[in-house]
Design a protein around this nucleic acid. Sequence first.
DNA 1: CTTATTTATATACTAAGTTATATATCTTGT
DNA 2: ACAAGATATATAACTTAGTATATAAATAAG
Lengths: 167, 167
Amino acid sequence: MVEDVIRALGHATLGSRLRRLGERLQAEAQELTGLLTGEELPSPHHTVLGALSRNGPMNIGDLAVCLGQAQPGVTRMIGKMKTAGLVIAHTDLSDRRVSTIHLTERGKKRIAELEALHWPAVEAGVATLCGQLEGSLLDQLTGLETLLNEKSLKQRVLEAQSQENEP
Amino acid sequence: MVEDVIRALGHATLGSRLRRLGERLQAEAQELTGLLTGEELPSPHHTVLGALSRNGPMNIGDLAVCLGQAQPGVTRMIGKMKTAGLVIAHTDLSDRRVSTIHLTERGKKRIAELEALHWPAVEAGVATLCGQLEGSLLDQLTGLETLLNEKSLKQRVLEAQSQENEP
DNA sequence: CTTATTTATATACTAAGTTATATATCTTGT
DNA sequence: ACAAGATATATAACTTAGTATATAAATAAG
């Protein structure tokens, strides 16, 4: 039995710990997208689609702000999403430096699937997990890690789905 | 004022949110290493040094387990730390597939600095922040983000240091 | 005692983020 | 009207993670 060093170091390595747990949840959520909607979607695409769905067409700079992320990363992600046919850029007529990102029909269809099938299921699954946590931030992180070790988010969400169908 | 989409999507994007906040804390902590010990040290080096300091020499596989990370990432990180002169690998005599990673003198010196100067300061700073949080995991994350927006971890730790010197 | 399987580490490729800087366009001051 | 500065996006170079797979060494099976 080897100890978990990042957990053992406590507040001193909280950054590493949050990041590690975040990556784990992202990976599980991405796998769930595939199972629930029939097609995977990289985690950063979710948040971009969410931003465009909530706010309507946006330019790169505003997207970066509302995703809390550096602009070059958003530019690259939008490039991939263009290739995937999810978004399209329109150069602003009154300021040709600005490119406004719109959802394509495919992007709108994809986000409708997310809103109908993926987000509610993940929201419910994660909320159920978080509802079992209490105490300090470190305690809750430990609790969440423990719950995920016992049974993955994926498994929990799929079980909840099947119970819905045969109650 | 643009809304923070990742925050707004709640439990559905908890993974992205944990990761984003983790990266932010890691970046601040790394900057603090430079200020407190005179030389920066990448965040993953901290946890590897911590593991070797707590457990003594370890092989790559066990390191991966106790860091909660995939083996190829650890191999790569150890490669960089060898180049930086922090660790050295000894091939196991009884099983020549296994390479045991030891701290060098420089590595031991570096970790002594971390234990004396960096970890206690960051531990205290982050613990003070976390002590002000309460409620659900999402609430505590929002609280932590808000506190960090008001004043960076770096600034908080440096202020605590100067108060220590002139009480 | 060889062949087959397992195991430990290394390598190749991909993804997503960062900072620093280049490019193109717009705005301003004279 | 035009040079100087500001701003929006793009590109480059780097970091750190992951999965899949190759390599090399040890163990097991016949």
